[in-house]
């Protein structure tokens, strides 16, 4: 039996630990939210107010025109469409390839399977940055690069942005491990029932590996959405992605100054759709990110 004193103390300890937990969570939430708040208020301030010190916590005069000007200055809609095209196709094809390769490497029996897998893994040791020039020369020989003259192949820059990064060994590896966890008995049972490998893949493996596949889709989408250096190299004005637009359109490269009010207005417009996507898919995204142990 607990005495009243002990119950009180326990309750006290509980309250204190709750206070600590919640204040920690509040602080962390603020750390995350303040940059967003700052982005929104900056997008509504005038150019003069931004330069003021100490900075104002709320715009003295709301300048909604920043949004109109941002849209006029940068071809944001076009960049947005480009980003959707590039991320959409590279995610779609990339995921299919990962599924096929992972299935072959985990389930099918053929000569040299392990060697292929080892070679694939070995390529992960080469940092992506080292591939930039060779990749560039390759896509350039295909006629996909638009260096201002226009590319030799119609819509070449889209191909140049989609194909070199479509296949990710890491994603194949991730999916192969998931496929390997599916018990062999299922495969044999399916075989006894006369199922083909193709059917087994789509009817059994893919539904079982759904969480991993969603992880891959999310990682691929985030990767394509955030890519910056490569699109800047291979694409001309009409094929740039949203990241290039946000970075370059509002900066004066000679003075090093950025018109933050316009840049932030554009950023709000770009973040909003992502935010909506996040609200709807947050369960999967959170699971995906924590499963893979990396952020993108």
């Amino acid at each position: 039996m607990y005495t009243e004193q002990q119950i009180k103390e326990q309750r006290k300890a509980k309250i204190i630990s709750k206070i600590i937990t919640y204040s920690f969570l509040t602080i962390m939430a603020l750390v995350i939210l303040i940059p967003f708040y700052w982005m929104i208020i900056t997008s509504l301030k005038s150019a003069v107010e931004i330069e003021q010190f100490p900075p104002t916590l709320f715009p003295r005069q709301i300048v909604a025109y920043n949004y109109v000007e941002a849209l006029e200055r940068a071809n944001l809609l076009r960049y947005f469409a480009n980003t959707l095209i590039v991320s959409g196709f590279s995610t779609l094809f990339g995921t299919f390839f990962s599924i096929f390769v992972a299935y072959a490497l985990s389930r099918l029996q053929f000569k040299g399977k392990e060697i292929i897998f080892t070679i694939l893994l070995a390529t992960m040791m080469i940092p992506g940055e080292m591939m930039v020039i060779t990749n560039y020369i390759t896509v350039s020989n295909f006629g996909w690069v638009d260096s201002g003259f226009g590319s030799r192949v119609t819509n070449g820059p889209y191909y140049a942005m989609i194909f070199p990064f479509m296949i990710s060994i890491f994603h194949i590896y991730l999916l192969r491990q998931t496929f390997k966890q599916v018990p062999n008995e299922l495969y044999y049972a399916a075989k006894v029932d006369g199922t083909s490998d193709w059917k087994y893949l789509w009817k059994v493996m893919v539904p079982l590996a759904k969480p991993s596949i969603i992880t891959i889709i999310i990682l691929k989408l985030m990767g394509a959405w955030n890519s910056y250096i490569w699109p800047n190299l291979v694409a001309s004005e009409n094929y740039r992605l949203i990241t290039n637009g946000l970075r370059a359109a509002f900066s004066n490269s000679d003075t090093g100054r950025t018109e933050f009010q316009l840049q932030m207005a554009a950023t709000v417009m770009v973040t909003l759709p992502l935010f909506i996507v996040f609200i709807f898919f947050r369960k999967y995204i959170m699971r995906g990110v924590s499963r893979s142990g990396i952020k993108g």
Binding site: N141, S147, N232, S253
Partner: peptide, 18 residues
């Protein structure tokens, strides 16, 4: 874009003859 981007773009395009 900015000067670093311009320099990188030129440096990458040089080996490709672009």
């Amino acid at each position: 874009g900015g000067y670093p981007e311009l320099r990188d773009a030129v440096n990458t395009s040089l080996p490709a003859g672009n």
